Computed example of a mutant assay.
Amino acid sequence: MRRDVFQAIADPVRRDIIDILANNELTVNEVAEKFDISRPAVSKHLKILDECGILSFEKKGRERICKVNTETLVPAFLWIEKYNKAWQSRIDSFENYINKLKSKNE
């Protein structure tokens, strides 16, 4: 199955993995230790992130070091940013409406 960045970030565990690895390169075991799910479940999430190109692995001896490839997250960031701007103006508009209602009732 072909996977993309949006499938990767759709799952909260995978988003947490990306957050954890954004600033640190960790071994697979170190990543697994940060979650209350089984090691095979974490490995499955890491595999999906790898298939999407978000993670890569570097082998050092018997360990596999996980690294985030931030450039693969750019399309998702741009898409989210576009909708964030649209929703922000709607939220601001709604907030102004609520504030007007509050002032009328005071």
Results as ranks from 00 to 15, higher is better:
residue 38 S to K: 11
residue 102 K to P: 00
residue 58 E to M: 02
residue 70 T to R: 15
residue 57 F to E: 05
residue 5 V to E: 04
residue 72 T to E: 14
residue 94 F to G: 02
residue 40 P to F: 06
residue 52 C to V: 14
residue 68 V to A: 04
residue 65 I to T: 04
residue 101 L to N: 13
residue 58 E to T: 10
residue 68 V to M: 02
residue 10 A to P: 01
residue 58 E to C: 00
residue 40 P to I: 04
residue 79 W to G: 03
residue 103 S to W: 04
residue 1 M to D: 14
residue 43 S to W: 08
residue 66 C to Y: 01
residue 29 N to P: 02
residue 1 M to S: 13
residue 22 A to Q: 05
residue 49 L to N: 06
residue 89 S to N: 09
residue 24 N to W: 07
residue 59 K to E: 13
residue 31 V to N: 07
residue 105 N to M: 12
residue 27 T to P: 09
residue 58 E to H: 04
residue 30 E to I: 00
residue 49 L to A: 06
residue 7 Q to A: 13
residue 103 S to V: 03
residue 57 F to A: 04
residue 81 E to M: 07
residue 9 I to C: 10
residue 101 L to A: 06
residue 82 K to A: 08
residue 72 T to I: 13
residue 32 A to L: 03
residue 70 T to W: 10
residue 92 D to A: 15
residue 72 T to L: 08
residue 15 R to P: 00
residue 94 F to L: 11
residue 21 L to G: 01
residue 41 A to K: 14
residue 84 N to Y: 11
residue 89 S to M: 08
residue 71 E to Q: 11
residue 71 E to H: 10
residue 15 R to W: 00
residue 65 I to L: 14
residue 27 T to F: 07
residue 29 N to C: 02
residue 14 R to Y: 11
residue 34 K to D: 07
residue 84 N to M: 07
residue 47 K to S: 14
residue 73 L to W: 12
residue 21 L to Q: 04
residue 54 I to Q: 06
residue 14 R to N: 10
residue 87 W to Y: 05
residue 88 Q to K: 14
residue 95 E to R: 11
residue 9 I to E: 06
residue 96 N to G: 12
residue 96 N to F: 04
residue 84 N to F: 06
residue 30 E to D: 09
residue 98 I to Q: 05
residue 105 N to T: 02
residue 52 C to S: 15
residue 36 D to W: 01
residue 80 I to Y: 15
residue 63 E to Q: 15
residue 24 N to S: 11
residue 14 R to G: 10
residue 51 E to P: 07
residue 95 E to H: 13
residue 67 K to G: 01
residue 30 E to P: 01
residue 54 I to Y: 06
residue 6 F to D: 00
residue 100 K to D: 15
residue 106 E to N: 04
residue 29 N to E: 15
residue 58 E to F: 01
residue 18 I to Y: 01
residue 59 K to C: 02
residue 88 Q to P: 00
residue 99 N to R: 14
residue 13 V to C: 06
residue 8 A to T: 08
residue 52 C to Q: 03
residue 96 N to S: 13
residue 77 F to Y: 15
residue 72 T to V: 14
residue 76 A to R: 06
residue 73 L to T: 09
residue 55 L to E: 02
residue 62 R to V: 02
residue 56 S to L: 10
residue 28 V to C: 00
residue 82 K to S: 05
residue 17 I to N: 01
residue 60 K to H: 08
residue 96 N to I: 02
residue 86 A to G: 02
residue 61 G to C: 13
residue 14 R to K: 14
residue 82 K to M: 05
residue 33 E to G: 13
residue 103 S to M: 10
residue 36 D to P: 03
residue 63 E to V: 10
residue 43 S to F: 08
residue 42 V to M: 11
residue 43 S to I: 06
residue 28 V to E: 05
residue 68 V to Q: 00
residue 58 E to S: 10
residue 89 S to G: 00
residue 16 D to N: 12
residue 61 G to M: 09
residue 8 A to P: 01
